[in-house]
Design a protein around this nucleic acid. Sequence first.
DNA 1: GTGGTCTAGACCACG
DNA 2: GTGGTCTAGACCACG
Lengths: 119, 119, 119, 119
Amino acid sequence: MVIKIDEYSDVPIYMQIRNQIVMGISSGELASGEQLPTVRSLALEMGINTMTVSKTYQILKNEGYITTDRKNGARVRAEIKQSGVISEENKAELRRIVSEARLSGVSKNDIKNLIDEYY
Amino acid sequence: MVIKIDEYSDVPIYMQIRNQIVMGISSGELASGEQLPTVRSLALEMGINTMTVSKTYQILKNEGYITTDRKNGARVRAEIKQSGVISEENKAELRRIVSEARLSGVSKNDIKNLIDEYY
Amino acid sequence: MVIKIDEYSDVPIYMQIRNQIVMGISSGELASGEQLPTVRSLALEMGINTMTVSKTYQILKNEGYITTDRKNGARVRAEIKQSGVISEENKAELRRIVSEARLSGVSKNDIKNLIDEYY
Amino acid sequence: MVIKIDEYSDVPIYMQIRNQIVMGISSGELASGEQLPTVRSLALEMGINTMTVSKTYQILKNEGYITTDRKNGARVRAEIKQSGVISEENKAELRRIVSEARLSGVSKNDIKNLIDEYY
DNA sequence: GTGGTCTAGACCACG
DNA sequence: GTGGTCTAGACCACG
């Protein structure tokens, strides 16, 4: 899986990587149980510091998306806990996006088509 | 229109205000051409720095949502330009949210229902 | 409140500080809404790196014990969410401690007296 | 006695095994003088490194919970020395757990009921 | 002035 | 070899 950093983005690097890995898991590009690159190799590959990648992995681990151990490195977690709900933060973000889309003249159906595309 | 600040949020205050005004315009709570409070009065009312409100208005103006002049103060722009598309940033955010919702076991329809609710 | 680091402990520094702040909040030594030392001042006072203190504050924030913002620094959160239950991790730890105490010849009542003392 | 490793736990494997054996001795599931599996067989059974099991036995021996010799292998120690007190480390841990439970809205009695259950 | 992010580099425990 | 911790130092956004 290719991870790309937008150096001009306001989103911190560790969060950009986190987001792309989450999307990779969701899309199936990263399979359940699949090995992730080591902290060092990913850092080297992306030209960033190991601490930054380490922070990403710790967040993903905390969120229950991956598991890490010193022996095997990081892996996509076999059984990701399903809360069954969208977080309040994400709901607020979704509402903001929908509002902006509406003001830009985007139809409700156009948004729903994007949902279909991304889901 | 009542604007509420979440002191626990990571979203900067100026951005929280900006988002709520945009959502207010989208929902119609803030009518086209409607006068917004002055920077000073809004800052006073919310107990925040005038610089913060000023920054919010500057952004809203740059985004084309409001107009400002010394005579009339800030007003909701009569004709907001409609690009007809969702910004790349918002698309990326939407994709992230959909991915996380999917991994949380939320169905595609549940998300679409939220779109209906927010649109 | 005085925070003390045991440099010979296996518990990481950031976690030692985190634990002491949590205990301070629980005991009331740190009042609701009370200001915590700034990252820089605490780091200086304890002779450790700001990153280490920063990590502590981020964990406490994540756990809902404190709130941080760039303006006011860190404060004990006014309304700490109460799950009403002991985490599985803490239950496992408690069970381990009770088992070891029992094997050391410590009576059930002695342990309960400690609970009274610490609660 | 069945020993189970939680691959998602931050507790090192050698410590997880150590803890379960100690709890097994305390509960009586492992009787006084009972033979423990050999390092090799336990490692094979659990699919882990013999070094890991060896480290576990070394610790248990140092702590006075088991005896080891080349002839008899490892056995639960017949007379485990009873200090009569809880170690300072365990007291600190207990205090942390009680503090967190209290802040989570868990009553003193709920904790004591757990003591009854685990003792 | 505050917390947040990031780097370069180091050492450590686990296995 | 792996992730985890920590330092010294820097720059940034927010307010």
